[in-house]
Nucleic acid binder design. Structure first.
Length: 286
DNA sequence: ATGAATACCTGAGAGC
DNA sequence: TGCTCTCAGGTATTCA
């Protein structure tokens, strides 16, 4: 599941291998991967043809390729969803199983968007080179130099909701998914149901620090594992085999205290906590 | 304002 | 073996 570190690994790969290249052709194999491009696949192909890719940028889990601005500062906006990959391949390499969109480049290679579950997708973002208007509601992420921890703390305490719910709300802080939310909450010894309104400032500081740390560590690990022609990580390689303390560890001992990690139903999914290190709040206030 | 439910998807794995 | 069911999860949208 690509969260911020995985998307950043992809962005860096695109920066190295795709920026500076021009588009020599586009083939859409699965129109559903373009469903967020409302004018449709034909328009997508037309608008992308012959453009030059000038930058690879990211905010949270979104990334975009800025296009040359002779005409306008458009961009190809991309979300990997649950299973998306961006692969760089020689044109004669066999098509991978879940290839959805092929972009031929002027160096004879191809940028291939692959996505098993089709939760992700591509779209042309008009005037989106600097920041696509489609994602202005997405907050800055903790790896953004302009991320404002004090502003986040203020916004968090204005909410009245569970702290994990808030961490997953991309309008408050972006890039955090369920894996890193559980890991950061475990490190900060906070239960996911703690009320944001009543968090202490030092608890928020600690949480933000751990969110930043855990994603930074994952990025370092992910960054070591991709080779020149494989721009992605996508869970299987790189970070995913690193040791997780809480996420997915139901029944295994907490690395800190040995108490078995517990799994609760949460937002139609799961939440993993150490019942001893992360005690459940007794009431709505605490 | 908040959150709950739902739609969007495939395929691995479980259970029968 | 083959069927059906559950689960996994991010985001947008709609409804309460």
């Amino acid at each position: 599941m690509p969260e911020l570190p995985e998307v950043e690994v992809v962005r860096r790969g695109l920066q190295t291998h795709v920026v500076g290249r021009s588009v020599a052709g586009v083939e859409v194999l699965e129109p559903r991967s373009l469903r967020r491009h409302l004018p449709g696949p034909t328009d997508f192909v037309d608008r992308l043809g012959a453009r030059t890719i000038v930058a690879a940028r990211r905010r949270g889990k979104y990334l975009w390729l800025a296009l040359d601005d002779d005409v306008s500062g458009d961009a190809v906006l991309c979300h990997l969803g649950m299973s998306g990959q961006m692969l760089i391949s020689d044109a004669d390499a066999p098509d991978p199983r879940h290839l959805r969109v092929r972009v031929l480049l002027d160096d004879g290679r191809e940028l291939r968007f692959c996505d098993q579950r089709i939760f992700g997708g591509l779209a042309i973002s008009e005037d989106g080179a600097v920041l696509p208007p489609e994602i202005t509601h997405i907050a800055r992420d903790p790896l953004d130099v302009a991320f404002d921890p004090a502003g986040f703390a203020t916004a968090l305490r204005r909410r009245q909701t569970g702290v994990k719910r808030a961490l997953l709300d991309q309008t408050l802080i972006s890039g955090v998914g369920t894996i890193y939310a559980d890991e950061a909450l475990w490190r900060a010894r906070l239960h996911y149901a703690r009320n944001t309104r009543h968090l202490r400032l030092r608890e928020i500081d600690s949480l933000v620090g751990h969110v930043t740390d855990v994603m930074g560590e994952a990025l370092e690990q992910g960054g070591t594992s991709f080779d020149a022609l494989y721009v992605n990580v996508n869970g299987q390689s790189g970070y995913f085999d690193r040791s997780l303390s809480a996420y997915g560890q139901e029944g295994r001992p907490c690395p800190r205290c040995g108490t078995p990690i517990r799994r609760d139903a949460f937002m139609n999914r799961s939440s993993f906590t150490c019942p001893r290190c992360q005690p459940r709040p007794r009431n709505g206030r605490w």
